[in-house]
């Protein structure tokens, strides 16, 4: 029940379907959020998500925990699978051309979802940082493509991505500390109440 991720991955490598199911339950939603934002197509995203998890099942032995976290590895699979799918369908070129319309979803496509707007700490950053992250992270642009789309030097795009990631990490750390403080206060209050 409280298996560590390392143990689950070991079981996955041994073709344990329950381990696979656990990983699906944990990572399908975040990955689907990424894929859907990249494709803006629900049916296509579902197909890609299945393909990503089939790759996880069939190539689990290639995952090296010393090199990355499992999510990072899955993110890279999802990103590449989505890019390849869009390339095959010839949609990627259009996306690059339509970068200015990023995240303006066709209402008929997003009908089943509240919104594909970006959520979370990223929204706290300056727009110039949000733009590069949206393109590279949520739209799977390469740095070069993002540089061309935003009409910025490649070095500037890389710097902005680096800065955005660092700032987000700070926010998450702060948020984590805040959550811990809240928990600590709650524990103290309960302790006082009990006794």
């Amino acid at each position: 029940m409280f298996d560590s991720e390392k143990h689950i991955v070991q079981r996955l490598k041994a073709k344990d379907q329950r381990a696979f199911e656990k990983l699906y339950d944990k990572y399908s939603r975040p990955l689907f959020g990424l894929i859907l934002r990249m494709t803006k197509n629900e049916q296509l995203s579902e197909e890609i998500l299945q393909e990503v998890f089939l790759k996880l099942w069939n190539n689990a032995e290639k995952f090296d925990p010393a090199k990355s976290k499992l999510f990072t590895w899955l993110y890279q699979i999802a990103r590449n699978t989505t890019l390849n799918t869009l390339n095959l369908k010839g949609e990627r070129t259009n996306r690059l051309m339509d970068y200015k319309d990023q995240f303006k979803i066709d209402p008929s496509i997003q009908s089943n979802y509240e919104t594909l707007d970006i959520k979370g700490v990223l929204k706290n950053l300056d727009k110039k940082y949000i733009d590069v992250i949206e393109l590279i992270y949520f739209k799977a642009f390469t740095f070069k493509e993002a540089s061309e789309a935003l009409n910025l030097p490649l070095g500037t795009v890389k710097t902005r991505v680096r800065y955005a990631l660092k700032e987000m990490k700070k926010y998450y750390d702060y948020k984590g500390q805040k959550d811990l403080k809240s928990i600590a206060i709650l524990i103290i209050m309960v302790s006082i109440w009990i006794g």
Binding site: E21, Y24, S28, R29, P30, L31, F32, G33, L34, L36, R37, E46, L49, Q50, S68, K69, F71, T72, Y75, Y113, L116, I118, K119, G120, V121, L122, I133, Y137, F138, L165, K166, M168, K169, Y172
Partner: peptide, 23 residues
């Protein structure tokens, strides 16, 4: 490591429910 944590947290914050049939 910090970057990995950042992108995972960002993905969690932007997670979307997957139709049950997919699983």
């Amino acid at each position: 490591e910090d970057y990995q944590i950042a992108i995972e947290n960002m993905a969690d914050e932007n997670a979307i429910e997957v139709p049950h049939a997919i699983k």
